[in-house]
Design a protein around this nucleic acid. Structure first.
Length: 427
RNA sequence: GGAGAGAUGGCCGAGUCGGUCGAAGGCGCUCGCCUGCUAAGCGAGUAGGGGGUUAUAAACUCCCUCGAGGGUUCGAAUCCCUCUCUCUCCGCCA
């Protein structure tokens, strides 16, 4: 959410940002509501002040044993007026609040302007495409042939877009998330947290999934709780309604959690393999930082996520999302795309964003520059470091051999209980 | 799941029959005085949010907030209802 006053004073900037994003929000309605709200506040506060003053007088009269019936009668009608105005003010603030919730973040000046994902410039690449003297297979074929990815039984147990891992594939999933956590908590200095994966709607509103993206969430109706779509939600909300002191910042957290997404708008997209599932594991990086440092922190966070693929020696590239493709809450986002030789293209494996104060304002996460200063909003950032399922897919496809087996990358061997490769097996 | 107790400012804690209570007192913190230094002592200050005025300054002023939301009332931290959370006991379960 943007700052109300800032929007009022910078309505042209907001309008321009909306156009760049191809988002539709009625700003003329905003102007109406905003000015009506303020006139109403002035009016109703005037009346309330009068009520307070006269009520004080009544108290004095009563104490002195005098009658105050005429004043009480006058206050009764005044109270009715206040109630009516307060009611209208509530309605207006409701509508204004919903409208403010619909305004996306303002993209940073460095974000390329463009319509859609075809306009995202490549920032850098790392490594090279591996060469094969055979036709590389997509990971789902590899997994089926080796017997370790069982989509059929997963569909029996649950439904489509779930997977059952067997044996060394299950172990690989576990190895990857341990490698990532060890790398981020060790070399990169993040603090590991393990949050709840069911959250309430205040948390989802804080990070921006609600109210706009309710369709994409799995909801537990009986308890009014949701399965998290990403660890960003519980981890960012750790500090909801809190005020940091300046030396509490920056905070760097990493968390492994399962993630759950309904993928409501994605039918027919990435239907095969591990790419787009309703349940997947992810290691998430979340930062709470001083506003002045947030863009440096974004670069570092992205580099931290990249480090996983470097450790695995897998080719990737980094792109900068353009204004038309960037997420609702984000001011700037880098996507890391991993090379999948069997699939024959790059695929997003991490999305690293600076939300500036957009989430912090919604979630009310603040800090004080010094003990006497007014609290101001922190900047929040997050990025996947990385999505585990997609990393499994990347290992499968990049480390596949002519005989259909998969070599275990050097960096993972300590985590794989001595296994050198994944071989075909029946389960 | 059942029974009970509770939720007040950074922390602890008072709040009488509803009437200058955003709130006694204490601790902590900040500033000043005192002291050779420290401690002690003395004095002053110390919740957050929003609106108006203004330069989105200072100052001034108003409103809201005593877990959250609603209600009663001229007036509620104080009375009523609903919800959330915490604690204790019982039951059930891993």
């Amino acid at each position: 959410m943007l700052d109300l006053r800032w929007v009022r004073d910078n309505i042209d900037v907001v309008q321009e940002a909306l156009e760049k994003r191809a988002a539709k929000v009625d700003l003329s309605r905003f102007k109406e509501l905003d000015s009506e709200r303020r006139t109403l506040i002035v009016k109703v506060e005037h009346l309330k002040n009068e009520r307070n003053v006269v009520s004080g007088e009544i108290a004095k009269l009563k104490k002195a044993g005098a009658a105050a019936d005429d004043k009480i009668e006058a206050m009764r009608t005044l109270g009715d007026d206040i109630k009516e105005l307060d009611g209208r003010l509530d309605e207006i603030e409701d509508e204004l609040g919903r409208l403010m919730m619909d305004i996306p973040n303002i993209p940073h000046a460095s974000v390329p302007v463009g319509e859609d994902e075809t306009c995202n410039p490549e920032i850098r690449t790392w490594g090279e495409r591996p060469t094969f003297d055979f036709e590389p297979k997509p990971h789902w074929d590899l997994g089926l042939d080796l017997g370790v990815l069982d989509f059929e039984r997963a569909a029996k147990i649950t439904r489509a877009r779930f997977v059952l891992y067997w044996d060394l594939a299950a172990r690989l999933e576990r190895a990857l998330l341990n490698l990532m956590l060890d790398l981020h908590t060790g070399t990169h200095g993040y603090t590991e947290v393990f949050p709840p994966i069911l959250v309430n709607d205040a948390s989802l509103t804080g990070t921006g999934q609600l109210p706009k993206f309710a369709d994409d969430l799995f909801k537990i109706e009986d308890d009014n709780l949701y399965l998290i779509p990403t660890a960003e939600v519980p981890v960012t909300n750790i500090h909801r309604d809190e005020i940091f002191s300046a030396d509490d910042l920056p905070r760097h957290y990493c968390a492994y959690t399962p993630c759950f997404r309904r993928e409501a708008g994605a039918y027919g997209k990435d239907t095969r393999g591990l790419i787009r599932h309703h349940q997947f594991n992810k290691v998430e990086l979340v930062k709470f930082v001083h506003p002045e440092t947030s863009y440096d922190e974004l670069e570092k966070l992205t580099a931290n996520a990249e480090a996983v693929l470097r450790a695995l020696k897998i080719h990737y590239r980094v792109i900068s999302l353009c204004t038309g493709d960037i997420g609702f809450s984000s001011a700037k986002t880098y996507d890391i795309e991993v090379w999948l030789p069997g699939f024959g293209g790059f695929k997003e494996i991490s999305s690293c964003s600076n939300f500036e104060d957009f989430q912090a304002r919604r979630a009310n996460i603040r800090f004080r520059e010094n003990p006497k200063a007014k609290p101001q909003f922190v900047h929040t950032l997050n990025g996947s470091g990385l999505a585990i399922g997609r990393t499994v897919a990347a290992v499968f496809e990049n480390y596949q051999q002519a005989d259909g087996t998969i070599l275990i990358p050097e960096a993972l061997k300590p985590y794989m209980g001595g296994a050198e490769r994944i071989e075909a097996k029946k389960f």
